[in-house]
Design a binder for these strands. Sequence first.
DNA 1: GGGATATTGTTCGCAACTCAAACAATACCG
DNA 2: CGGTATTGTTTGAGTTGCGAACAATATCCC
Lengths: 408, 408
Amino acid sequence: MRKINIRDFHVARRTTSRDINRHIALNLIREHQPISRADLARRMKITRGVVSVLVQELIAQELIYEGATGEAARGRKPTFLHIRTHDRLVVAVDVRFTKTYLMLCDFSGRELAIESYETVFSIPEFIKDLAWRVRKLLKRQEQGFTCEGIGLVVPGMVDQRTGKILNAPALGWRSVDIRTKLAAATGMPVHVENSARACALAQLWSERGEATGGHNFVYISVSDGVGTGIVVNGELLRGRDHIAGEFGHMPLNPDGPLCMCGASGCWETYTSNLATLSRYFGWNLSKRSPKRLKDAERSSFTVLDLVARARGGDAKAIAALQTSARFLGLGIATIINIINPDGIYLTGEITTAWDLIEDAVRQAIAERALTEAATRTPLRVTSTQEYPRLRGAAALIAAPTFAAPRVA
Amino acid sequence: MRKINIRDFHVARRTTSRDINRHIALNLIREHQPISRADLARRMKITRGVVSVLVQELIAQELIYEGATGEAARGRKPTFLHIRTHDRLVVAVDVRFTKTYLMLCDFSGRELAIESYETVFSIPEFIKDLAWRVRKLLKRQEQGFTCEGIGLVVPGMVDQRTGKILNAPALGWRSVDIRTKLAAATGMPVHVENSARACALAQLWSERGEATGGHNFVYISVSDGVGTGIVVNGELLRGRDHIAGEFGHMPLNPDGPLCMCGASGCWETYTSNLATLSRYFGWNLSKRSPKRLKDAERSSFTVLDLVARARGGDAKAIAALQTSARFLGLGIATIINIINPDGIYLTGEITTAWDLIEDAVRQAIAERALTEAATRTPLRVTSTQEYPRLRGAAALIAAPTFAAPRVA
DNA sequence: GGGATATTGTTCGCAACTCAAACAATACCG
DNA sequence: CGGTATTGTTTGAGTTGCGAACAATATCCC
């Protein structure tokens, strides 16, 4: 029961019906390819005649193509339709404190090349270096493709509309118009987004249908900090200033440890990688300044190492993980009570120890969830091996092709 | 950039364009009445010819009617169009721990009659009594109207789809199929909703355009507990189990006072009426059981009395309000960081002392808000005199007439 | 007072769209 | 090789938005 926005509505034009149906057809092909026109008509519950025209238009737009003919028990064999993805390329960039990851992939998310290197913190140098790497990456490809843009994600707050980085404390970047700079250096369209929200986008737009667990979910990325992306009605929640989704900075205890955001007792100070390592090494969080903590993080010992020790039987490591897991669960319970999503996705170093921490997480959720049904909210761990941030960066460029037309 | 839901999409039919445009026209008339066809055409940026037909259909559906002719500096005078509301009635019911409020109003929200009485906690008696009161209320009205349904709101969790009350601890109601019972007793359609979410609906669908401060906001109702309703993209966030929006139970401190929900340290234990009164009287919250607190609430001394004493110079009362205000602000800051709404609406007894507590609230927000822009999120206090819960209950029945058709 | 002008609301031909049904093109089966 | 089932196209009908012409007012101004 949505209210029509009187200040920003979209009247149906002569072509609106077809625009809508063409996009539905495109998305159905994307989801069920290879698929025939007749099958499309059945799924859409419209006549084959209309589907014929829709498909003809999609082919003319070079969004899909006809493939081989399929098999049928009786009657004429169907001609399969496919999404044209292999020659539409995207450059995805994931800037983190430790390293910068660079991926070239096609519109389906198929990985063509991937590389990583030490992050360059000076903005002009970063741009120059990145533009060079992108050119090199594309030169290596065969001819006959188009690169449709660069998707870039950073840990921090981003105004997605203008492409400006508002504040990325981990990188020390503040008020940087990265889109304009990078677009000027490469001549390509650039989209910028917060890394956790990009993960949510990756999940939403992932082509593998199995993952389509509803259009309402929250994505939680636990790493240096805790980032979250909220998807409601198949749309990423961006908010007035494009900074929505910062569950990481909800207070678990207003008198808790100091956080990089300036406040104290944020959820991320209890469950981030830093928090877990601090527990293990016995650092006193409340007395350390955020700056010092950044140095600590530079150290070579990571949560992955801690997990390895835990698996080796290190009791202190296990205890540190369990405590972080408990706080992780408390935060998840709160998210469930607030958003009541269809599911919650998790990623980050600590999730590699999911078998060790799942019980603690679920117990904490059960402790605070308001209904029994809420405790059964599905939790899905996505491996960091799948590069969720990079896939989200790619989705920034690829997704608009498939997005629903704005209407009413 | 919304993704089309492949499992639940709506193809555009032959009549879809007109359905969309008719609803847009209807909403524009609702917002700008009285309005002429020509003015509608200008606002919608479609030809007057189409508007003529749309209007003709809306008149045939008895959703609008032609009124007087207006004035024009030159040329033919316009015929004004109006929404038909005066003879479409709604019964709104607000069940609270202390009292039950009953209102008869028309589709515009115009109040025709209002009454309140001691809440009856026995379900069969409650239904019987309410059905009797509704019949009496309608009998008093003149003929020539239709009552289109009953909207009922309760403090607690409600499955809006099935009309079942899942758990309303304040009333001691649990798993009650109130819709079926009440519909059977009255023969009218019944819609049930959580009271804070109903307030959000009231705000969203309020006819007075001045309040239309965007289609993304959070409504916070501070009373016995703290209820919240989240509106995203002009739609109330209901969640998988229809229990979304429970900001009241986010933990401010996991070791805090015991809450009625079973957990401890929930936001509402720090800023609800009960919390404020407890501070004033020096009750030890953490040691009292929720049951005992309910008794305390039965006492005749309310937050309104406390506010009166504060205005009279009672230092302890002022201090209690200030502390609650600080925690209110901390919670609001968290909501802002998570949802980043266009605005936040507040109601409840404590907001009658807004002039006394605003500074403390804003200071707490500034303390935890992640950006400077976020601290400037507009806060709007809605008076309890306007019966926001009853208006929300009425919106449950009236709003579907105006809601956007589902498409794509 | 009466034509010029301006505005509202209706009508009509045209183009775009969905829809149902007929039709052509395959392919399998007995 | 005809019967049948299925895919994909075509065609005519009904619905809709669009543009332009038209009728119905009303004011302005000579």
